[in-house]
């Protein structure tokens, strides 16, 4: 399968700060997530890919077009939603989508897009009067307007409520499955990336620190993580923090705690934990293996 994005050894510095350091990435058609903390270099990478900034070193290609060349060659085939996009407050969503659509060789009618993002009721309201969530959904609609092959979404679900996020995730998956549209998504909300993405990469301080399919990464990084169902997670946390062989303890809720252990504690973990709480009021009801993208994030970014 041909790569739709190829990045090779990109370096970008702003004065003393290295925003990207020999960053390389290849993306095949599909839904790809780029994960990293604030200032990791995600937005800089996006700007370079869109031709808005130039790298100091390295090359990048989108849909087989060099990003340092004429950006018009690939801008007609992609859609973009920036983290803080600007939409003219005095225009209506319908008018704006019509105008933007006319810039592309073929476009989706505004009516269809607005219905897709559930914004049809507000089609003729001024954009300046829309709520933050509606604004975000308009952003998704304008990224889809030119029937793109590849869509860049920078924090697509920020400002959205739970149903709004569900809508966006479902839309992304549906567009990939039905229309073969690929997505390059950066987001802090990892649960959504987990639901939508096929592959993810972690970026920290301008460097790629990990990449792979979500399943692979979760398997690789969270095999020593367990969720412990207990009667008192705060007291259990105190006990475990002072125990040898416990790498990380995280209180999930008042009755649930996430524990990461060393290999020595892996065998017979449940009985070992029960032994530890003997003589206290804390009860352990059960243990299950746990592993989410968030756990992988903690492992590769927080503990990096």
């Amino acid at each position: 399968m041909k790569n739709i994005i190829s990045i090779s050894g990109i370096t970008k510095t702003f004065g003393e700060i290295k925003a990207l350091d020999e960053f390389s990435l290849e993306m095949e058609p599909g839904i790809f997530g780029l994960i990293g903390p604030n200032g990791a270099g995600k937005t800089t990478l996006l700007r370079i890919l869109l031709g808005l900034a130039r790298q100091d070193k390295g090359t990048a290609e989108i849909l087989e077009n060099e990003t340092s060349g004429d950006p018009l060659r690939y801008l007609k085939q992609i859609g973009v939603l920036h983290e803080n996009p600007y939409f003219p407050p005095s225009m209506t969503p319908r008018q704006y989508l019509d105008d933007i659509g006319s810039l592309y060789p073929t476009s989706v009618p505004a009516e269809d897009l607005l219905s897709m993002v559930k914004l049809l009721d507000a089609a003729d309201r001024k954009i300046g009067h829309l709520s933050a969530g509606m604004h975000r959904r308009l952003g998704i609609a304008q990224a889809l307007v030119g029937k793109p092959k590849l869509i860049f979404l920078d924090e697509p679900t920020s400002n959205l409520d739970v149903s709004g996020r569900d809508l966006v995730v479902k839309l992304i998956v549906k567009m990939y499955q039905k229309d073969d549209v690929s997505f390059f998504i950066t987001s802090h909300i990892l649960s959504e990336l987990e639901r939508a993405c096929h592959n993810v990469a972690f970026i920290n301080a301008g460097k790629m620190v990990e990449r792979g399919s979500i399943q692979e990464l979760v398997q690789k990084h969270t095999q020593k993580r367990f969720r412990v169902i207990t009667s008192d997670s705060w007291t259990l946390e105190e006990i475990l923090s002072e125990t040898e062989g416990i790498v990380d303890v995280f209180v999930d809720s008042s009755t649930s705690i996430i524990v990461e252990v060393t290999s020595d504690l892996l065998t017979g973990i449940e009985s070992q934990l029960k032994e530890l709480v003997k003589g206290t009021d804390v009860k352990i009801y059960g243990i299950e293996t746990t592993g989410t993208l968030e756990d992988v994030y903690r492992k590769v970014i927080t503990h990096a």
Binding site: L50, G51, L52, L72, K76, V80, Y86, F87, I100, L103
Partner: peptide, 8 residues
């Protein structure tokens, strides 16, 4: 940034 991400 938004405008220059369209084909203009």
């Amino acid at each position: 940034r938004t405008l220059l991400s369209y084909p203009i």
